[in-house]
């Protein structure tokens, strides 16, 4: 005869089995849509490149991974550091960080402004912030080009006022990419910041003033700590797509100011080097994951979040 304890153990086992069964549709989707393609990519990065793109199936090679940071001289086969790739990696990380900082500085006051409007007006302002989001990214990028090109609005205006005599070359520089990305990704910063700010009890701000804190001290000691979850979320949301940006550097940066996205595209396109493209993609993913880990660790250490 089964003891109560045995019955309980059996029931629990049955329960666990049922749970696996019930969650199987979700597990299948995750396996097919997320883990599967990643695995294919990993596999491709370790194969020989095909002559006209694609890979030579099941012929393994580490050439793809070598190519990420190293290059083989055409004449004497010596290995050297691939300067071009290092430059592109560095430019991507640098421009993504700068984009994050610029959008944070522009987005913070914007989100604060919206959060302090009367409840009815807020929706209108949020709507205005998200409108560019519904416009094709290519069109937005060309609009930015119209603003910063040599005969564009900025240069014409500065010449007309008399600040400069000849147009400043902004197009096809890193600055052009920075302006473009900051413009494109600003809503991604504003929205999470707003979501955090909207939750702030503004009586806390009054309490701060009441307790002799000046405006700057209230911002530093009360508002920023309370908005920290929004700052972190916004920074992640801007940094990650910036790192892999493709359209903006292509249009505004021209051919020579490539970023990682363009480099990867090149390998799958004209470069016909799929293994290298796959290896570069995985490298990009590792950088993003590392960045996320650092953020999460920082966030949990300082307690981030309300209360």
């Amino acid at each position: 005869m089964a003891t109560p304890r045995e019955i309980a153990v059996a029931a629990e086992r049955q329960d666990i089995r049922n749970r696996w069964l019930l969650s199987s549709p979700a597990l299948v989707i995750i396996a097919l849509a997320a883990i599967g393609p990643l695995f294919v990519m990993l596999l491709y990065s370790f194969m020989l490149k095909g002559d006209y793109g694609d890979v030579k199936a099941w012929q393994f090679s580490s050439d793809g991974w070598f190519g990420v940071f190293l290059q083989r001289d055409i004449f004497d086969d010596t290995l050297t550091l691939a300067d071009a790739h290092v430059t592109i990696f560095w430019r991507s990380v640098k421009l993504s960080l700068m984009t994050t900082v610029v959008t944070l500085f522009l987005g913070f006051p914007t989100a604060y402004f919206i959060a302090t409007r009367p409840a009815k007006q807020r929706d209108i302002w949020l709507f205005l912030v998200t409108i560019p989001f519904w416009t094709n990214i290519l069109i937005r990028t060309f609009a930015m080009q119209e603003v910063i090109r040599n005969e564009g609005i900025v240069n014409s205006a500065m010449i007309w006022i008399g600040i400069i005599d000849a147009p400043i070359q902004i197009m096809y520089t890193d600055w052009a990419i920075l302006f473009g990305m900051a413009y494109v990704y600003l809503p991604l910063m504003v929205l999470p910041l707003y979501a955090s700010m909207e939750k702030i009890d503004f009586r806390l701000v009054e309490a701060g003033y009441d307790l002799y804190a000046t405006r700057l001290q209230v911002l530093r000691r009360i508002i920023i700590p309370l908005v920290k979850p929004g700052i972190i979320a916004g920074s992640i949301l801007v940094f990650i797509p910036s790192l892999g940006a493709y359209v903006t550097p292509r249009v505004l940066g021209g051919g020579k100011n490539m970023m990682l996205g363009n480099l990867i595209e090149l390998q799958f396109g004209q470069g016909r080097n799929w293994p290298l493209g796959a290896a570069l993609s995985i490298t990009l993913m590792i950088i993003v994951t590392l960045a996320l880990l650092v953020y999460v660790k920082n966030a949990s250490k300082s307690g981030g979040g309300h209360g």
Partner: peptide, 18 residues
Amino acid sequence: PFQRPVNTVFQNYALFPH
């Protein structure tokens, strides 16, 4: 308010949660 030697106890206390 930060220049007045006057302090307030708020209705909902308004304690700083962080």
